[in-house]
Nucleic acid binder design. Structure first.
Length: 299
DNA sequence: AATGCAGACAACCGCAAATAT
DNA sequence: CATATTTGCGGTTGTCTGCAT
């Protein structure tokens, strides 16, 4: 393979270097920023003598050179958090990275793409699925799932085959009792149901999942899904929610493993109903009628 | 030893939002 | 207020490295 490092091209202000950064370039950039401060990347590009584009300088600093960057293996705790955050937020890498001190969005994104996405896809491979965007209600307390007849908490065979892949986070006692309170309802969206055919490859399955995630985002929060706005969190008895930020609520929520760890996550309210799924589900909750009833052991 | 392949990570690019002029 | 510039994000591509053949 032909290796061509630091390919150059003509830019507006002369040659712009591309490709891998060399240690001496790192040093120049680091010293420049230590002297002049972070930001003004076009100025950095022009005045540092690096002959690198503004974006390239910014990216190099942000992802590799700035202080407190954590290098090395992603720990199990970090991986766990990435998975849970991704279920919650989707591909919002900068938001996810924001919860992992020292990790960058690029690193989280790469880790997801190389280590985690494939693993998740394998879970779904070979299953025929019907995707339902559940009827949801946004309230002061939770994003709610109102249409619990689909699937209902009943005992028919259909429900036995239900897998919640990306449902609401929270077990029955903590989340859904609250969510069923009609007083909290204010915005309601329609139910949309789509049927997926048997996926022929993991890629197709992935695409289907992405599509349904988008659908549910739209119907869920009526276009208010940016950042944490529109994402609301379960109640903790000892917390005065009027006194803390959305970010702090998220921290609290994510730290409550004992309550929520095994439950699926919001806001992707897609349900997958395998036509044939013979493995018994694990009753990993004392609350027989809770969501965990529908969570298979691998989730 | 040479080659091909796949995984992992770094870097680039296009676009949109935010900010400055 | 309109336009230009800068910044940030996420998808994609490129490069390196280790392993299998």
């Amino acid at each position: 393979m032909e290796k061509e490092q630091n390919i150059s091209k003509k830019g507006e202000s002369g040659i712009i270097k591309k490709g891998q950064w060399k240690p001496e370039e790192d040093l120049i950039l680091k010293r420049y920023i230590e002297t002049h401060g972070e930001g003004k990347w076009t100025t950095v590009s022009k005045k540092s003598g690096l002959m690198r584009g503004a974006k390239s300088c910014r990216m190099r600093w942000k992802n590799h050179l700035r202080p407190n960057i954590k290098r090395g293996q992603i720990s199990e705790d970090e991986e766990d958090l990435i998975i849970r955050m991704h279920k919650l937020l989707g591909n919002r890498w900068s938001l996810i990275a924001g919860r992992l001190p020292g990790r960058t969005d690029n690193e989280v994104k790469n880790y997801w793409n190389t280590h985690l996405s494939r693993r998740n896809i394998n879970h779904y491979r070979g299953q025929t699925v019907i995707t339902t965007t559940i009827n949801c209600t946004k309230s002061a307390g939770l994003i709610q799932m109102n249409d619990l007849e689909t699937p209902s908490m009943g005992t028919t065979s259909t429900h036995e085959n239900c897998i919640v892949v990306d449902g609401i986070l929270g077990d029955h006692s903590q989340g859904l009792h609250n969510s069923l309170n009609p007083d909290q309802a204010d915005v309601q969206s329609d139910i949309t149901t789509t049927t997926e055919t048997q996926p022929t490859s993991s890629e197709q399955r992935s695409d289907a999942h992405n599509e349904s995630t988008i659908l549910s985002d739209q119907s869920l929060i009526s276009g208010e899904s940016d950042n944490m706005e529109g994402c609301t969190f379960p109640d903790f008895p000892s917390v005065d929610y009027t006194m803390i930020s959305e970010d702090e609520k998220l921290s609290l929520w994510l730290s409550s493993e004992s309550i929520f760890y095994d439950a699926p996550l919001l806001p992707c309210s897609d349900y997958y109903f395998p036509v044939s799924y013979d493995e018994p589900f694990e009753h990993n909750s004392d609350d027989y009628y809770g969501w965990n009833k529908y969570v298979p052991s691998w989730l």
